[in-house]
């Protein structure tokens, strides 16, 4: 299984940068997410994640999204559902969400994700 790195074009700011490392289990998604045809972007990410956890390896997901639209939220939540299921099956999962500390709207969204997926997300504010 290979690492997953998605950086479609730095100028297309509506695509986040994705870097999922198979060797270390450290996975990161950063930037903004409001592209068209959201499922086409997130499907390979979700597939990679499902294949990765099938190998029973530990995972650290670092989320550094500063904005995501409604369609993207659905897929971010899907990722959390998958990780919740893995946690319940004994998988070693840590999720960190880095957010700018003067952005209460993002904080609300993170808390909603936690509540909906019933999974712990460590919230890490930065200035």
């Amino acid at each position: 299984m290979e690492n997953l790195h998605v950086n479609i074009n730095p100028e297309l700011v509506y695509y986040p940068i994705v870097s999922f490392n198979y060797q270390t289990g450290i996975c990161e998604i950063s930037g903004e997410s409001y592209m068209e045809e959201t499922y086409k972007f997130y499907e390979p990410i979700i597939l990679w994640l499902q294949n990765y956890i099938a190998e029973k390896k530990s995972i650290v997901l670092n989320v550094k999204l500063t904005y995501f639209n409604t369609s993207s939220s659905r897929f971010i939540l899907e990722i959390f559902y998958i990780l919740k299921k893995y946690t319940d099956a004994g998988g070693d999962v840590r999720i960190n969400w880095h957010y700018k500390n003067d952005d209460p709207d993002i904080l609300t969204e993170i808390n909603d994700f936690m509540e909906e997926a019933n999974i712990k997300i460590t919230i890490i504010p930065f200035q």
Binding site: Y39, N69, T70, S71, S73, R74, F75, L77, E78, T108, D112, E115, E116
Partner: peptide, 21 residues
């Protein structure tokens, strides 16, 4: 917020619908 989370559950994965927006 509760309604939004409930809508995520029923929304088609390819189309979350205008309601959540």
């Amino acid at each position: 917020r509760t309604k939004k989370r409930n809508l995520y559950k029923i929304a088609n994965v390819q189309d979350t619908g205008a309601h959540i927006g």
